[in-house]
């Protein structure tokens, strides 16, 4: 079923007044023509509207890179932090003010390479952060170097002979490290992504959404994709299968495809609550 048909059949969240959550004067954003980051941002803003959260209670923290420019465009408490360290800054804010909804915006290089250790330990603590990893298989801000999710053999400015480093699966990593909500979406499946992000926001604990989106300028051009649309069709639509469909498909049809949807969800004690009840409780003898 195409997204268009889905859009018709379900109650639509569009047209949507994005300006309610944007800092409209900051637009146009810095992202290249066809970059998927804007599509993801729109899904996120619709999910936030659906969550009913108040703008004053939302904090968005990012690291460094293209996706990490997101906080500059949204009207929340926003922090553009250091490369890879968004998790740690966000942990500090959330821990100091547990009533805030803290959303981490990070890219695959930011989260899985330079921020890999922070990513792991954020998941392990299961602190209540909503983490959106924009996975576009490239370092875009610096001009197209291979990233921890660049597929084997692919071309980047630092892998002219083909990438020899196997790519990371952010979802498997998150689940193994202890995140209590793990999901994947794509910019192509934007309504599905909106619902997934909403579920992630509502979840108490570390929720990680790996979002496949396209970098047509660097990754696309170097790897012979014709356009942003072409990338969305090949990588995001044909390269993924929803978890619901996957159950019905034979293993050979799933080969080389990434699963979409909520991949893992469990109830596990959340860090700030544990601190309040276990640590502060014992320290004060309550």
């Amino acid at each position: 079923m195409s997204e268009g048909t889905v859009a018709k059949k379900q109650k639509l969240s569009v047209p949507f007044d994005y300006d309610k959550y944007l800092r409209p004067k900051k637009l146009p954003h810095i992202w290249c023509p066809g970059c998927g980051h804007g599509i993801v941002l729109k899904a996120l803003l619709r999910a936030i509207e659906a969550s009913g959260l108040n703008k004053d209670d939302i904090c968005m923290v990012s690291g460094i890179g293209c996706s990490s420019r997101t906080p500059g465009y949204v009207d929340f408490n926003t922090m553009h932090s250091l490369h890879g360290r968004a998790f740690a800054f966000a942990t500090g804010i959330k821990f100091a003010k547990p009533n805030m909804k803290v959303i981490v915006i990070t890219g695959d290089g930011d989260a899985l390479a330079i921020g890999g250790n922070h990513f792991i330990h954020t998941c392990r603590r299961n602190i209540d952060l909503t983490v959106l990893v924009y996975t576009n298989a490239i370092y875009g801000m610096t001009g197209g170097q291979y990233s921890p999710t660049t597929p084997l053999g692919d071309i980047a400015t630092t892998s002219r002979y083909g990438n020899i480093e196997p790519p990371f699966d952010a979802c498997k990593m998150a689940e193994a490290a202890g995140a209590s909500f793990v999901a994947r979406g794509t910019a192509y499946h934007t309504l599905e992504l909106e619902k997934t992000i909403l579920e992630a926001i509502k979840h108490k604990g570390t929720s990680v959404v790996d979002i496949i989106d396209a970098c047509p300028t660097y990754y696309g051009r170097m790897n012979k994709y014709k356009s942003a649309t072409h990338m969305m069709e090949v990588i995001e639509k044909d390269g993924t299968v929803s978890v619901k469909q996957a159950d019905k498909l034979p293993p050979e049809k799933l080969e080389g495809k990434l699963l979409r949807g909520v991949l893992y969800k469990t109830d596990r004690p959340e860090y700030c609550e544990q601190y309040a009840t276990q640590v502060m409780g014992k320290a004060t003898g309550k």
């Binding site: 859009a7 949507f16 944007l22 599509i39 729109k42 309504l191």
Partner: peptide, 18 residues
């Protein structure tokens, strides 16, 4: 009015207002 243009526009540049 399927609104796919709005949903997939990365630039907040197009919408279908009924």
């Amino acid at each position: 009015r399927c609104q796919l243009c709005d949903l997939r526009c990365p630039d907040f540049a197009i919408s279908v207002i009924d």
